[in-house]
Design a protein around this nucleic acid. Structure first.
Ligand SMILES: [Mn+2]
Ligand SMILES: [Mn+2]
Ligand SMILES: [Zn+2]
Ligand SMILES: [Zn+2]
Lengths: 153, 153
DNA sequence: AGTGAGATTTAGAACTATTCCAATGATATA
DNA sequence: TATATCATTGGAATAGTTCTAAATCTCACT
């Protein structure tokens, strides 16, 4: 787990370099924050968390860095209704369950088989680059706290 | 087809009455506009279309009426990324294919069997009130213009 | 037909999340 | 060390939507 965090900055540096971008303290900090507490935070929430360690950072930079991480395929942007964009470091194929009671987001693993079945509903000529599955409802507390999907990548 | 339009205002009046609401010219006009051209218009687009027949209507009323129609389960609000809310009169279970090239939205029928399979990925304790499936990609013009899903309800 | 309560519409202000902008600061390279 | 480029910053601007308060309409009841 410590290793994962250490490695993450190397992964980040590599991905940034691949895109001709620099590894900055802000980018590293934001990336590690998103990895650390994988609760699909909004930009504002990331801002609040990062400011504890890096008080001078600006909200604009948080938006810039998150967008950069998305471009580098290290983080995914996810949307619920018209709410603020949330950021997810789980890169495996998964669905999102939005608990209407608590407002929390839960990852739900999707098998390649199911994804294939879903894609199969598309008529010929439709070429889907991405498939998104979103649930909305209630998750009973007893089970929701136990559920955990495997880490990203 | 003419019948469908005539009946629609009765359906509307009934649904509104069920919710203790009144049938107004604005609500009728907006509902018929959304039914007439089922291309998932935004509030702005509905506003533009409705103004041709009802020049004095306000954008606030368009938002109000669309929200009312959603509450009455006559129209569904759908979202893509952080774009403006779009409105869909197709009440059957279906997915949305968002063509990135043209920006158009296509309905894709979903069978109850597939929906059941998708729900089956949820761990025990997760109770999904809604399931949403969204594709993003490109639809080749040749086939996309031919594809049509059955009318709503 | 007239009145009043409540529903509806309206214009514009306010709001939220995000993006844009221009200035400043940091970094890599020559 | 100079220079070009990249990155960050604070604040202004933007887009979509919601809110507010006043005007208008509708309906039930007299
Ligand atoms: Mn946000
Ligand atoms: Mn709109
Ligand atoms: Zn996720
Ligand atoms: Zn639709």
């Amino acid at each position: 787990m410590q290793q994962t965090l250490e490695l993450s900055s190397e992964v980040l540096a590599q991905r940034l370099a691949d895109s001709g971008l620099r590894a900055t303290p802000q980018r590293e900090m934001i990336y590690e924050m998103v990895l650390k507490k994988r609760d699909h935070p909004t930009a504002d929430e990331v801002y609040a968390r990062v400011r504890a360690d890096m008080p001078g950072i600006s909200l604009a930079t948080v938006y810039n860095c998150l967008e950069t991480l998305v471009q580098c395929d290290l983080v995914r942007a996810v949307h619920f209704e018209r709410g603020p964009t949330r950021y997810c470091p789980n890169l495996r194929p998964h669905a999102h369950f939005h608990d209407e009671q608590s407002g929390t987001i839960h990852d739900v693993n999707l098998t390649p088989e199911l994804l294939a079945q879903i894609r199969a509903v598309l008529p010929p000529g439709y070429d889907a680059r991405t498939v998104e599955v979103t649930f909305r409802g209630k998750a009973s507390p007893l089970t929701s706290s136990e559920h955990r999907v495997a880490g990203s990548e």
